[in-house]
């Protein structure tokens, strides 16, 4: 039996009259890349917010590696090993890429207040290798603000990986990127996750991306997980096609 990394049970969360989650159960297995699909506004991003401590569910719980993290703060959850990549990459735009990564690595190691020069931090070589892994080594000395969106996405993933997470949660990793570029970015991204043996959950709207990169797909609609399965099974389901893909 495969190991469950993240396990949500009976999640309920409402915003005013909108029910984003109404009894959501979801297990994420070690090593897999799980896609969450569903109509806009269905609550997919809400799930990522709950799993990273930014929102507290009104009922239900989230366990990470057997530990209840429902009441944990975002920082405590980050320290336990869940990192996050956002729909809009959250980078320190005025810092160089390598500086941002060094800050993330220092945060992971809990040494932020030092007067050590950025030039000779012990994590530097490790972070350069991480950039190599996402194919952005040549951008190390560039400020994030000058990078095109596609590269920012990759640097954002490198930031998440710099924290040495066990699980990465990604909100639309290919949004805002030209469709021609999507596969190239996902190829690099998934290879990097696999190289570091990191499990991932990603919210995605592009069914081609889901088909190609997800090991399993969860369909989130009307506050519930409607179905979970392989992309082949789920994307062929007529109910899913009408509900989510809207054909």
């Amino acid at each position: 039996m495969t190991k469950v990394v993240l396990s949500a049970r009976g999640l309920v969360i409402r915003f005013g009259g909108v029910v984003a989650a109404d009894g959501v159960d979801l297990d994420v297995q070690a090593g897999e890349h799980l896609a969450i699909i569903g109509p806009n506004g269905a609550g997919k991003t809400t799930f990522l917010n709950i799993a990273t401590g930014y929102l507290k569910p009104q009922a239900g719980s989230v366990e990470f590696l057997g530990q209840d993290i429902t009441a944990h703060s975002p920082r405590a959850i980050t320290r336990l090993g869940i990192a996050r990549a956002f729909q809009i990459p959250q980078l320190f735009l005025e810092h160089t890429v390598i500086e941002s990564l060094l800050i993330a690595a220092a945060s992971r190691n809990g040494r932020l207040a030092t007067l050590r020069s950025l030039e000779d931090l012990p994590e530097r070589e490790e972070m350069m290798q991480l950039l190599e892994l996402v194919g952005a080594r040549d951008a190390a000395e560039h400020k994030a603000v000058v990078l095109p969106e596609g590269r920012r996405k990759l640097v954002d993933i490198a930031m998440a990986l710099a924290l040495k997470p066990k699980l990465v949660l990604m909100d639309e990793p290919t949004s805002g990127v030209a469709s021609a570029e999507k596969f190239a970015i996902m190829d690099v991204l998934v290879a990097a996750l696999n190289a570091q043996a990191v499990t991932s959950v990603f919210v995605e709207h592009d069914m081609d991306v889901v088909q190609r990169y997800a090991d399993r797909v969860a369909v989130w609609s009307s506050g519930k997980i409607q179905t979970v399965g392989t992309p082949r099974e789920v994307l062929a389901d007529p109910a899913v096609i009408s509900q989510v893909i809207g054909i």
């Binding site: 975002p74 920082r75 980050t78 320290r79 990192a83 996050r84 956002f86 959250q90 980078l91 320190f92 735009l93 005025e94 810092h95 500086e99 941002s100 060094l102 800050i103 993330a104 220092a106 945060s107 992971r108 040494r111 932020l112 207040a113 030092t114 007067l115 050590r116 020069s117 950025l118 931090l121 930031m159 710099a162 924290l163």
Partner: peptide, 22 residues
């Protein structure tokens, strides 16, 4: 220095800084 870079990072984007555990 790292300490200074962290101050600037928090100034630039508090959310992103929190997301990496600062």
């Amino acid at each position: 220095t790292l300490g200074g870079a962290v101050i600037l990072a928090v100034t630039e984007d508090r959310e992103a800084a929190t997301a990496i555990g600062i």
